[in-house]
Design a protein around this nucleic acid. Sequence first.
DNA 1: CAATCAATCTTGACAGTGTCAAAATATCGC
DNA 2: GCGATATTTTGACACTGTCAAGATTGATTG
Lengths: 207, 207
Amino acid sequence: MKQTAPLQHNYHHGDLYQSLLLTATEMIAEGGTESLSMRKLADRVGVSRTAPYHHFKDKNTLLCAIAEQGFERVETLLQEVRTSASPEPLATTFTQYVHTYIALAYQHREQYDLMFGREIWRNGTPTNSLLERSRQHFKSWLSWIEQLCQQNVIQTGDSVLRTAQVYWATLHGLCRLLNDGIYTEQSQLEEMANTAVNMMLKHQTTA
Amino acid sequence: MKQTAPLQHNYHHGDLYQSLLLTATEMIAEGGTESLSMRKLADRVGVSRTAPYHHFKDKNTLLCAIAEQGFERVETLLQEVRTSASPEPLATTFTQYVHTYIALAYQHREQYDLMFGREIWRNGTPTNSLLERSRQHFKSWLSWIEQLCQQNVIQTGDSVLRTAQVYWATLHGLCRLLNDGIYTEQSQLEEMANTAVNMMLKHQTTA
DNA sequence: CAATCAATCTTGACAGTGTCAAAATATCGC
DNA sequence: GCGATATTTTGACACTGTCAAGATTGATTG
């Protein structure tokens, strides 16, 4: 509420909340979720072990906040792609999105793992805020697939919902396969993305 | 080497190796990888904390052994399906395999997560034995996809390798989506599997 | 300005983890 | 039975998340 408060050190540390979020994201990017301990984080930020607990109830809550930012990023990407009045045909736009999505997941692999990993969704408890944002993102995706179906870019005999689920699963599966380094490497990324797009767009085509 | 040794307690404990493997698998099935600690495992088997370390160098090694058994299971499934001289058309066989695979992944969800999760593939170090077996399984999958391509059950303009990778990614993505409880529930499993199969089999069909 | 109150941060503590080193024990080949 | 070897145990260490109690700081009110 106070906007005129002097920046920096308006309290003990300043904006510790943001500082924690930022540093934690860095640490995760460097060495994954496991390399992030609340104690090391506090150390790196320069506060005592338990200081973070006044800004994040849990380690889980902190992780949820980071995951949430990841969802914001992909949501932004999706919206940008959808609203960009590109002269390209919609199929091309879709293809580009797939490539960008996979590239993004690879670029922020650790955060991506966090977004969909068991750390939050199985062990931990997703924050309401995170739940909402992730659901909203899937709705955006669903809505786009619906549009693509209506405009005959995607032709499927199955329901839009199922199609959206399976298509996203394909995308997600590719990302995991890549991120986990199983059966493949990043160099094959482009080709695999193209193959995936072919599979999706030519799904039940009659010509 | 000794086959005639009296069963049970031929040493301190008996066949501790197998006992550990079995109990650990149980514990994982019950509460996931995180609920398995070396100490609790030792407790449950009835030995001291560090006894397991004479049979498994690491917790990592133990986990790899469990994951390996998972790969053995799916490999067995794949071989059975392929060699069963079914009167059904190959497309039907493929569809059945997809359903069974997903069902299996769901039934042994924690073990499945272990097989492909970051616990082993990122944090830990996959055992040579595990590496080999997982690679061999992908080869089997690749070989099947190749066969299906040759017999025109799958029609794709892309390379067999890329097709196999993307198809497996789709399958895997579905399993994760399901296992992690993101965007979907098990009740939608059948339909989603069908949608996925449709997408794969009608990939670039001309009729 | 002084006093109160709440927000923030620190120190101490606890139970839990993986795993190494050294000591104890049991089994087997001779 | 003896010595070697495989197996198990006890003790210890550094690390984790997080709770409770106390100390410090900032904002608020009189």
